[in-house]
Deep mutational scan, measured.
Amino acid sequence: QVNIAPGSLDKALNQYAAHSGFTLSVDASLTRGKQSNGLHGDYDVESGLQQLLDGSGLQVKPLGNNSWTLEP
């Protein structure tokens, strides 16, 4: 069960990665100043990332080996 409060997208993504045990490689300029609506409930990694990114204009991309990145 994930419980991440709304706020900074950077912070939300870092909390989610730490909670879910995956690696997220992101260029900080992509997420700077963006906000997230947070995340509450049970999600697989990709669904949770998509939910956190909702409205940010960013997309999640798998890199393999439980690693992910973001792209515009």
Rank of each mutant, 00 (worst) to 15 (best):
Q1T: 13
V2W: 09
V2R: 05
V2G: 04
V2I: 11
V2M: 08
V2E: 02
V2D: 02
N3P: 03
N3T: 11
I4S: 01
A5R: 09
A5N: 08
A5S: 11
A5K: 10
A5T: 07
A5D: 10
A5E: 11
P6I: 04
P6C: 11
P6D: 02
G7M: 12
G7V: 05
G7E: 02
S8Q: 09
S8A: 12
S8C: 14
S8K: 07
L9I: 02
L9H: 01
L9R: 00
D10K: 07
D10S: 10
D10M: 13
D10R: 10
K11T: 13
K11D: 15
K11V: 14
K11C: 14
A12P: 01
A12T: 07
A12G: 02
L13D: 01
N14Q: 15
N14F: 14
Q15W: 09
Q15D: 14
Q15I: 10
Y16D: 03
Y16A: 02
Y16S: 02
Y16K: 01
Y16F: 15
Y16C: 07
A17W: 03
A17Q: 08
A17Y: 02
A17C: 09
A18P: 03
A18I: 12
A18Q: 12
A18C: 13
A18W: 09
A18E: 12
A18F: 10
H19S: 10
H19C: 14
S20W: 15
S20G: 13
S20T: 10
S20F: 15
G21V: 00
G21A: 01
G21M: 05
F22R: 02
F22Y: 01
F22W: 00
T23G: 07
T23N: 11
L24F: 10
L24Q: 05
L24H: 05
L24R: 02
S25K: 11
V26D: 06
V26H: 10
V26F: 15
V26W: 15
D27G: 03
A28C: 14
A28F: 09
L30H: 05
L30E: 04
L30Y: 06
L30N: 03
L30V: 07
L30A: 04
T31E: 01
T31R: 00
T31W: 01
T31I: 14
T31Q: 01
T31L: 14
T31K: 00
R32D: 10
G33E: 05
G33V: 01
G33S: 05
K34M: 09
K34Y: 07
K34L: 13
Q35C: 15
S36C: 09
S36N: 02
S36R: 00
S36G: 02
N37W: 08
N37R: 13
N37D: 08
G38R: 02
G38F: 00
G38C: 06
L39A: 04
H40P: 02
H40N: 12
G41R: 01
D42A: 13
D42G: 08
D42V: 15
Y43H: 07
Y43F: 12
Y43P: 04
Y43E: 01
Y43D: 03
Y43Q: 03
Y43S: 01
D44S: 11
D44H: 06
D44P: 06
D44Q: 07
V45E: 00
V45K: 04
E46G: 11
E46R: 12
E46F: 14
S47G: 10
S47F: 09
S47N: 08
G48Y: 05
G48I: 06
G48L: 05
L49F: 08
L49Q: 02
L49I: 08
L49H: 01
L49D: 00
Q50R: 15
Q51Y: 09
Q51R: 13
Q51S: 08
Q51D: 04
L52H: 00
L52M: 06
L52S: 00
L52V: 03
L53H: 00
L53G: 00
L53K: 00
L53E: 00
L53Y: 00
L53N: 00
D54M: 15
D54A: 15
D54I: 15
D54G: 09
D54K: 15
G55I: 04
G55L: 04
G55T: 02
G55A: 05
S56I: 07
G57P: 00
G57H: 05
G57F: 05
G57S: 03
L58A: 02
L58G: 01
L58T: 00
L58V: 03
L58S: 01
L58H: 00
Q59E: 08
Q59F: 10
V60I: 12
V60F: 10
V60Q: 07
V60H: 09
V60A: 15
K61D: 01
K61S: 07
K61Q: 06
P62G: 10
P62H: 14
P62F: 15
L63N: 12
L63W: 04
G64R: 00
G64E: 06
N66T: 03
N66H: 06
S67W: 10
S67T: 13
W68Y: 14
T69S: 12
T69G: 11
T69Q: 11
T69N: 04
L70R: 03
E71D: 06
E71P: 00
E71Y: 10
P72I: 12
P72S: 10
P72F: 10
P72Y: 10
P72Q: 10
P72D: 07
